[in-house]
Amino acid sequence: MAAEISYKPGELLRNIAEGDSDAFTHLFDKYWLQVFAHVRTYIKDNAAAEDITQDIFFSIWLNRSKLATVQDFEPWLHVVTRNRTISGLRKMLHEPDGGISATVPEIAAQQSDSPVGQLDYKQSRELLQKAIDQLPERRRQVFRMSRQDGLTHAEIAEQLQISKATVNEHIGEALAFLKTRLAAYPGLLNALLLISGCWLGRK
């Protein structure tokens, strides 16, 4: 399991910055509860707090190249968490900034000029869901069983009484379609699937 891998100081962030999804899963498992607990202190609704927590890790992965310059991760993560929590509170209360952001400076890993950088986790997930809804019925069913329910290809084949080769074909075609539909948001599909996989691993 990823959580059992031992990383030297600085190695974990460097690996993530280079696109190592196993290293990111390790970081997710290590810090998810800590981040969620901090968010939950201010956001009393569990579902909303989970969304904000997912959003934080989603942003970290999308902007992973910047992790190579982070010297002290935990204080950095605290600032990211605080910023995202304040942003979430603003949305929930439907109130303007009120000058809050002036006292909590935005940090580089939360900013991007790309279309993906302008989306939060919930918005991105909705984009993906709309694209999934356009898949043919059986392909959509197979994809959801794999990526959203966390079933193996063998389990899907058994439940649907189809071959593993057919499952593989459905997954491959679905991913190709989704990458095309989300081409305007480079990296979005892989980021969403990675975060979803990390989340499934916690259940």
Rank of each mutant, 00 (worst) to 15 (best):
M1S: 15
A2C: 08
I5Y: 04
K8A: 15
G10R: 07
R14G: 01
I16H: 05
A17H: 05
A17F: 02
G19T: 11
D20Q: 02
D22Q: 03
F28I: 01
Y31L: 11
L33S: 14
Q34V: 07
Q34H: 06
F36P: 00
A37V: 05
K44M: 09
N46I: 12
A47P: 00
A47K: 11
A49D: 13
I52S: 01
I52M: 07
T53D: 02
D55N: 12
F58L: 09
I60D: 01
W61K: 02
N63G: 09
R64D: 06
R64Q: 07
S65T: 13
K66F: 10
T69D: 14
T69L: 04
T69E: 15
Q71K: 13
Q71R: 13
D72K: 11
D72L: 07
F73Y: 08
L77Q: 10
L77W: 07
L77S: 07
V79L: 15
V80S: 03
N83R: 15
R84E: 11
R90F: 04
M92W: 00
M92T: 01
H94Y: 02
D97P: 01
G99S: 07
G99L: 08
I100S: 09
I100R: 07
T103R: 05
E106Y: 10
I107S: 08
A108Q: 07
A109F: 13
A109V: 13
Q110K: 00
Q111F: 09
Q111E: 09
S112E: 02
S112A: 09
V116A: 14
Q118W: 01
Q118F: 08
Q118I: 05
K122Y: 10
S124Y: 08
R125G: 03
E126M: 14
L127N: 15
L128A: 09
L128H: 07
K130V: 13
Q134M: 05
Q134L: 13
Q134P: 00
E137C: 01
R138S: 14
F143K: 02
F143Y: 12
R144A: 10
M145N: 05
Q148R: 08
D149L: 14
G150I: 12
T152L: 12
E155G: 11
I156R: 06
I162W: 05
K164R: 15
E169L: 15
I171Y: 05
I171C: 04
L175I: 11
A176V: 12
F177P: 01
L178I: 00
K179Y: 11
A183Q: 14
A184W: 08
A184Q: 10
G187W: 11
L189V: 10
N190V: 07
N190M: 08
N190Y: 02
L192G: 06
L194G: 03
L194S: 12
I195W: 03
S196G: 10
S196C: 06
G197K: 08
C198G: 02
C198P: 06
G201W: 09
R202Q: 13
